[in-house]
Nucleic acid binder design. Structure first.
Lengths: 142, 142
DNA sequence: TTTGTTTTTTAGAATTATTCTAAATAAATT
DNA sequence: AATTTATTTAGAATAATTCTAAAAAACAAA
């Protein structure tokens, strides 16, 4: 299994201690905002600044190591899982969860493959299922 | 055909001059940020403030007259077309366009209808096709 | 190693979208 | 007309993100 250092280097970036720390934290959190990453790291890495967290996440995004998302609490989120997958977005808790449904992704990709959109070159397809999770789901039912 | 006043009232809101102006502007723009609405209206309606634009759009969202979106330039957008449809998001210009493809929407809805997600109650499905439009699309090809 | 060059990090200020607050206005109700 | 309630206004407050300029680290060349 690859080390974090190797993963970062294979994507064309220098594996600085800050980048390694941010990547490991993102792997642990799955989906997170820059703020959440900083919060987790401030104990083990007190000199790390928010500007660096943003810089590092930005460089990861450019290198394709993660993907940016935007949610309805108006914050940037980052997702370390870069393979094609669907997102569940819980409006009650402003949280993302991956929804691993290759069937749905394949279905939509196949559908769009046959149907070119004139004047538009597709980079990616983003399917987001918005709703309410768990306990809150019950409360809202009637 | 319904007047703006009627549309607003039928959704349970008082049809104030500000609300009428904002609604008409949204209809003209299709997708817009609060800022864009304010910009358009500041000539014909110089006393209208940004706080009011936000208040009005917020009340429209609650009443179901429009729908909020969030895009990768980190801004709130509003969409007057509330029926089920797909969005094209142009990353070059940070702009939304509707992509009216009932087939795709139906396909995804049907697929998900048979597959309940445990612990999650679905409110809506948001399909966004991200890419680059027109002139920019050509430039990026090789 | 030393030197020079480039990249990354840092701290804090600047920016900007959105929300909040409290007063003023308008609309609706009695 | 008087009173209550909802809406608008202006500007201040908040908060996420970006920018700036200096310091530190990494790298390359000699």
């Amino acid at each position: 299994m690859q080390t974090t250092k190797e993963i970062i280097q294979e994507n064309g970036l220098k594996a600085t201690p800050q980048r390694i720390a941010v990547y490991d934290t993102m792997k642990k959190l799955g989906h997170a905002s820059a703020d959440m990453v900083g919060e987790v790291l401030k104990e083990t890495y007190p000199t790390l600044t928010k500007a660096t967290v943003y810089n590092v996440l930005e460089s990861f995004d450019e290198a394709g190591l993660l993907v940016r998302r935007y949610s309805s609490n108006n914050k940037m989120y980052f997702d370390v899982n870069t393979y094609d997958h669907v997102h569940l977005y819980d409006t009650a808790k402003s949280r993302y969860k991956d929804y691993d449904d290759p069937g749905l992704v394949a279905l939509v990709n196949k559908y769009l493959a046959n149907r070119k959109i004139p004047g538009f070159s597709i980079k990616k397809i983003d399917i987001q299922i918005v709703g309410i999770a768990d306990a809150e789901a019950k409360k809202q039912m009637n």
